[in-house]
């Protein structure tokens, strides 16, 4: 057999079927390499896709809250304007403050009006008690009569008025 016959027989050489299948699977499972340029474009697009997805999510949140101007529908959050409980609470807080203002005004008025009268009454009571006269004192600071066991406290002005004499 000469060499040319041997080389012709090489054409009939085929791999084992099992080995062929195994090699095909290995090739298909291996990572497919792309050109560097194609790989860069894919990475860019995927990253951009993630960012855009987040932006769209934020956009829809804005849309849902009605924060975009020119919205053509009443956003859920704007329903708070017709919230009766919130309105009532705010109105009640104002009423409380009005009561405080009236209390303040009336306290100042009654104090200034009563100071002179009750201070004079306290002085009168002092004089009566000092002389030992068994006369019911006309008034103490709050108008209680002398028979009351607990004398009412004097205000600063009432005490000073009594001590001027």
């Amino acid at each position: 057999m000469n060499l040319s016959d041997i080389f012709k027989q090489f054409k009939n050489i085929v791999p084992d079927a099992g080995y062929t299948e195994k090699s095909r699977r290995a090739i298909l499972a291996s990572p497919q390499t792309m050109a560097i340029r194609e790989r860069g474009i894919m990475i860019f697009l995927r990253s951009l896709e993630t960012g855009v997805a987040l932006v769209l999510a934020g956009f829809f949140i804005l849309l849902a809250t009605g924060s975009l101007s020119g919205g053509k529908y009443l956003a859920p959050v704007q329903y708070s304007v017709i919230d009766p409980n919130g309105l009532h609470a705010e109105a009640q807080a104002i009423d409380i403050q009005i009561q405080l203002a009236n209390l303040d005004y009336s306290t100042v008025t009654s104090t200034s009006e009563s100071t002179t009268a009750t201070a004079t009454a306290a002085v009168r009571a002092l004089i009566i008690k000092g002389t030992g006269t068994a006369t019911t004192s006309t008034a103490t600071s709050t108008g209680a009569d002398a028979s009351s066991t607990a004398p009412a406290p004097l205000s600063v002005d009432q005490a000073l008025q009594a001590l001027t004499q």
């Binding site: 306290a122 002085v123 009571a125 002092l126 004089i127 008690k129 000092g130 002389t131 030992g132 004192s137 103490t140 600071s141 004398p151 009412a152 406290p153 004097l154 205000s155 600063v156 005490a159 009594a162 001590l163």
Partner: peptide
Amino acid sequence: DCGLTADDVAQIGAIQS
């Protein structure tokens, strides 16, 4: 509340008399 009452002030009258 200063705690002063007419009785406190009345001490003066009591002393005077």
